[in-house]
Structure formats: C-alpha cells, structure tokens
Design a protein around this nucleic acid. Sequence first.
DNA 1: GCCGTTTTCGGCCCGACTGTTTTCAGTCG
Length: 575
Amino acid sequence: MHDASNQDIAEILREIATYLEMQDVPFKPRAFEKVAQTIEGLEEEVSALYKKGGLKALEEIPGVGKGIAERIEEFLKTGRIKDHETLKRQVPVKLADFAGIEGVGPKTIKRLYKELGVKDRATLERAVKAGHIAKLAGFGKKSEEKIAKSLTFANGNRRFILGYAMPQIRRVQARLEEVPGAEKVVIAGSARRKKETIGDADILAVAKNSKAIMEKFVSMPEVAAVIAHGDTKSSVKLRSGLNVDLRVVPAESYGAALNYFTGSKDHNVALRKISVAKGWKLNEYGLFRGAKRLAGKNEEELYKAFGMDYIEPELRENTGELEAARKHALPKLIEYGALMGDLQTQTDWTDGTEPIEAMALAAAKAGLEYIVITDHTKRLAMTHGLDEKRIVLQWKEIDRVQKKLGNKIKILKGSECDILKDGTLDLPDSILSKLDVVGVSVHSHFNLPRAEQTARVIRAISNPHADILFHPTSRIINRREPIDLDMDEVITMAKKTGTVLEINSFPERSDLKDEYIRKCVDRGVKLSIDSDAHSSAHFANLEYGIAQARRGWAGKKDIVNAWPVEKMTKFLKNN
DNA sequence: GCCGTTTTCGGCCCGACTGTTTTCAGTCG
C-alpha cells in the first residue's frame, strides 16, 4: 500500500477537527487541529516513525495521545478513519472546497448544507448566484457578497515564500510610515520570526491617529480587497494574494502587542500559561497583576518580568527557548551582516548570468571579503557544466580578475561538483585537490529509496576532497520534495569527515531546514550560509540564510563563512 | 483529546471585527 504522507494525515485530522466543531464538541477540535499542524511541520515521515516504533512512536509526537495515535494507525493501515466517516456522514460536504472562503467556518458550512444543500464549490457558487444565502436567517447581502468575493480568489490558502513576500511587506510598511502621526510601524508575525514560508503578514503600528493610518492601509494601490476595516484592526488582500493584517495599539502596549502578534502561537500560549501560574494576566495590552501593569511597553521588560532574557523572534517556537531564557542559557545567534564570505556562487561560465568580475564586485558591495566561484560540473550538461579542461581555463580567468581587483575582494576557486548516482563525484580527484573549496550536490536521481540515497550522499561527502554538502536535501519549496535522506546519519557522517553542511539562502531552497541546523549545532557539525547567487542581485538573499541559521540556534562559531578567510580555508583543509 | 514546575482530573489563550443583530455568534489569528 502507498504510504500516507504527512500532508494526508494532517488533512484528515483537520477534517475531523472541523466536523467536531460543527457538532459544537468542546476542546477536542483544538486537539486535532493542533496535531494536524504539528504533523504538517514534521520533517520525519509519520509513516516511517510508525514503521520504526509503532503506536509508541506516534505518541511521542507532541499533542498525540492514545486516541489520536490509534486513529493515525488506522489511517496508515486502512487509508481511512472510522470516526471521520461517521462524522462526515452527518454533513457530507467537500471541506477542502471551503478552505479559502473568507468568513465561512464550520458552523456556516453546516448551515449552508442543512438549509441550502451546499456541499462543494459548485453548489456554493450556485447558491450565491441565486441569492439564496442572503435570505437565510442571520445572513444578509453583505455576507453573501463576501462569499462571492472570496470565490473569485481561487488560490485557496497557499503559503508564501519569505524571501519573495518580504519585499512586499516592507513596501506596505514604508507606505504606512509616511502617514503623519505614525510613530512606529513594525513587521510582526511569522515574517518577523523569519519562517521560510508565511501564511499571511502582520504589521503593528503605534500611531496618534489610528483612523488615518487605517485609511491609508485599505486604500493602498496594491490592495485587491478589503477584508476588514476597523479603528484598531484592518485586514486586506494584496493583488499578489498575500493577506496583510494591521493592528494599531497605544504606545504603552507596544511591547506586549508586538510579542503577541509575533507569536508563535505556541510560544505565546506557553508564556501565557506561565503568566496564569503566577496569577498574572498577559494579553496584547500588557502584563497585569490585577489592575497593575507589570510590563508592556517593550518586549525586553516583558521577558524580564518573567525572569527571562530577551528571546530573539526567530527562536520563538516553544522548542525550549523559554526555559533557556529563564536559565540565561540562550545561544548567541549569528548576527545579520556577520558573514565574511560566500561559498557558493555561479557565473556565466555555467548557468549564472554574470561574469566572474561582476559577481566578485557585487559580493564586495554586499560587504563580503571573499567569494568562492562554484560553477556546475559537466554532468549538468544543460548548464554547460565545467569539465577538466574548462575548469582549468576558469582558474586562469579567476587569477586575472583577482589581479585586477586587488584587495577589493578575495576570489577563491571552487566547484559545485555533481554527485553521481553511485555517490562518486563528477570531477577527478586530481582536479578537486587543486580547488580551494569543493562543494558537492545532488542534481539528479531525486527519487532513490532512502537507503540508497543516504549511502550515495555519504559516499560523496566521504571523498577527502569534498568540503561542503550544498543544499543537502535539494528540496525546492512548492516545487520539489526533499530527497529521501536519513539526515541523522548524514549529520553523524559529516561530523566524522568534517564536512560542512550548507544553509542555502535561495528563498525557495532554504535548505537545511531549521530543525536540522539545530541538530548540527548540538552535535558540533559546522555550517555555511551561501547565497547560491546566479546574479549580482542574489547576494541580498544571504539575509534569509542567516535568518534560517538563527532559527536553528546557530552562532558565529557554527558558521564557517562568518570566519576570516584563513581560518575558514584552514578548517576545510584539516577536516 | 491532551496534559502536568500547583494537577492523573480539571482545566484547556483571548480579544477584535463583522453582520445582523437589540446583545451576540461566528470567525480569525
């Protein structure tokens, strides 16, 4: 039988949650919903966990107890869950069709089904067209129009890649900053936590005249639809499809509100639990003991009131940061702008768009002191990958450019050498041994079974000349699944061979994922943060690689290209 | 249904906005 993916499992659990909500069952919906979200974010396949450790392994997933574990087991074994089917029989609708419909939740779905026979997108569209919805008790013209409007946004609830959403969000931020009386306009939410993908954007403002800033917000040229427009909260959909929420709060609540709207939800709930245990109350307006305000005007004093150090937004996922903050044991994260070099860049020798010199100058302009030229190798024929002869010619060109640029920037010779199917490398050792930096990467045979794929990659990084494993899982967000690697084994081997694992800053790659970065940090495996630039504009993406590293609790000590060039190359030589 | 730095039973975050309603349920984050 084909194994159910994490996405499949998350989906059916979420459907159970929605059906339970329709029946007004208290608390259980949240339990299912929460697990659905956890499983969605899990790197490890749940089916693999189950195969290895059975029910017990399932119960180790946070939020999964006996009940949900058994239901997951049932789903993995039979492809169905009885409870789900029983619930579905009562309201047999295609829930997925309602996913992107603004303002339509479980209760409304149930009523539309019971009273109008609406069961999917097509029947919903018909009911809207016929004007049936406006006639229902408790509904009106506006509710119907709202549904009609969201039906025209067919894109559902896709997630946006941070690196591409961020410029849009910053543009909105800049517009709001121009409004007279706007004292602070800051990006909150998952964008502030620098999640690799975001569902929507949150902006928080402190302003003398909240009406004026709201007015500006809903009338920006990039707004496609206004979802809500109030005095302190408004919500719009941009033409790009991105939803943006704006909240305006008084200055004394700024820190509490920023904390609240930055999340994550899990982090907030955990913090609020601590607050409840102390007999305090924490909300977006402040931290209170009775009527007395203990903190709220900035985040530092808020955490301090809990006896904690300030927690950087990238760490706020409730994965141990609260405890570490209380023990004053948070890591010192690598700072934005702290990189000294870039260990993966492509030029017009292969699939980059600019010459070596232009790339080197752009890197210097981005504040870097060294750059490694790592063009593709011959196996990647479509990029005109370098063979033994052309790479030697490239070295000459690098020497020429280096001479010309002098001490503006140091240019190192490298390669993004293809890992062949059997784990051998695309260039002979005689060439690799002459390079300053050898990166190796998978660009083919993405679908090998786990054991074979893992053995392939391990063989590659075991080559004494291999320094870095570039974009280790080769995933491309929304486009290509990660290759099936036993990452624990790869990390173990990387430790043994002194191989550096790359954090690729290209927004749709963001590879490694934060949880593996953290494992590397814990186990002393070094990392690099590379742009994988194919043009001079791409050096700006390093910001997102640094963000990813921070989300994985990495510090300067963990990142080899945050070190001076001599220390970096010495490390690669000796490891 | 899950979970435990008061708890293995009794809690489970909390407030804004909307639409249609004279006081609130549903939705969202």
